[in-house]
Design a protein around this nucleic acid. Structure first.
Lengths: 240, 240
DNA sequence: TAACATAACTGATATGTATCATATTCTTTT
DNA sequence: AAAAGAATATGATACATATCAGTTATGTTA
């Protein structure tokens, strides 16, 4: 972990380059206190950050990296609820609860800061701007969760695959002219879990998109050749 | 609306009997200010409180009554996201947004207080206890939404009907010994929309529960004769 | 009370989805 | 480089669900 020690010099909140972090909305004093007391760790790809049923001790903020937030159903079938990326809060669903109802796993090497509850509670009491930002974040996540709830119950497998591709585009996509390259570490299984599908279903529909030239491959990456086709397919769900 | 004027005497926050209202967590001064500036209205059964796409001006609190919160999918298929009852916040998903992404309709005559955003923002800034209560409420709603997201994508129609019956029990159920009487104004269509189903599906599965004596009728009310059968059927989704 | 409109219910059928079995490709390990 | 294991892919089949058409019941209005 020499790597960790070398990097940790960047983890003073004041000089931290992560501009999306909510701690940036704190007063100078509070930012200093967080800087002193937070614990910053590296999570390797596949490593568990917290798991379903484990105790809530505080809140996490992603310095950099990517995390999948999931929930295990019966017979171990998982549903991916959300991806969290640089600057995102993580574990905020646990606010006011004793145990996490969901789990979080790093899907690439990630640097994540942890702030314990007593400190977190103190700073949100004192920093209105940060607080409003967090409340607005909760509200937007609630809207997103409910929109997906409706979508999952109404979409066909084909549409779920299209939506999953769009969600992955937002997280992993790199634009190349018209095309979007999905450089993602996700397995087909995990891609299927975004839309609550089986891997076979995902693969079959994906291959239909490939036959239609909407999607392609390059260096084993999925390439979305015609993003607008997906957008049109899903437009009936996204209007307003 | 003479009825309204007569009742409005009860709507001074200080003397209001609604103990679950978050305003009860405010300071005396703030409660007085809310009491003066809020607008209390009666919504008749079926009346729209706010609709999808309408502008967010503030927040609602249910003095008494019952409200369905829904989202319209394509070809007008609706998904009921949640029921809100006495003391609940309503419209809080709109926090930080310009427009509502969801709609709310009274499903029985309801008395609802409205607080505009400037006032709401002022009081949550100043009242930490209220604020923490609201944040915990957001977190719990997020957990509930995500749990239902998983359930909707994994449950069979039979299980969705069982879950819908449980959800209705929590809102409309009156316990009579072992049995639960569902005295609800919901149509079959609306019951189906709780679980994202078609009314035919709901009715068919409901009748199978009736054939199995798990559910029955009395005075046109649905009676859940054996609540434990539903609980067992859903136990695989609720463990942890 | 009759007529109408809405809601509730039933059955048949087509479509879509889940599951299983198996084949192929890729990746990792020795 | 060979072998083993994992991930990906494909096809066949059974099952569940969606949809449609039509019937019965209920409630509302004139």
């Amino acid at each position: 972990m020499a790597n960790f020690l070398k990097m940790s010099a960047n983890y003073f909140c004041k000089t931290c380059p992560q501009k999306n972090c909510v701690i940036k909305l704190c007063s100078e004093d509070d930012m200093q206190e967080v800087s002193d007391k937070k614990e910053t760790s590296i999570y390797r790809k596949g490593q568990v950050i917290f798991s379903e049923g484990s105790t809530v001790f505080g809140i996490y903020i992603i310095h950099n990296g990517k995390v999948k937030v999931y929930n295990t159903g019966f017979n171990l079938k998982q549903q991916i609820l959300r991806f969290s990326v640089d600057g995102d809060l993580l574990g905020h669903r646990g606010f006011g609860a004793k145990k996490y109802s969901i789990g979080a796993i790093a899907i690439e090497d990630s640097v994540i800061c942890f702030i314990d509850n007593p400190l977190y509670y103190r700073i949100i009491k004192r920093n209105t701007e940060m607080l409003f930002h967090i409340m607005a974040f909760y509200a937007s996540e609630l809207r997103a969760a409910e929109a997906r709830m409706k979508n999952l119950s109404q979409m066909s497998v084909r549409e779920k695959v299209a939506e999953s591709l769009q969600i992955m585009s937002a997280i992993f996509g790199k634009k190349e002219k018209e095309r979007i390259v999905l450089d993602t570490p996700l397995t087909r299984q995990e891609m299927a879990e975004i839309g609550g599908m089986r891997p076979e279903q995902f693969i079959k529909e994906l291959n239909i998109f490939i036959a239609d030239k909407v999607v392609g491959f390059s260096d084993k990456n999925i390439i979305i050749n015609k993003p607008h086709v997906l957008t049109e397919l899903l437009s009936i769900y996204n209007q307003q």
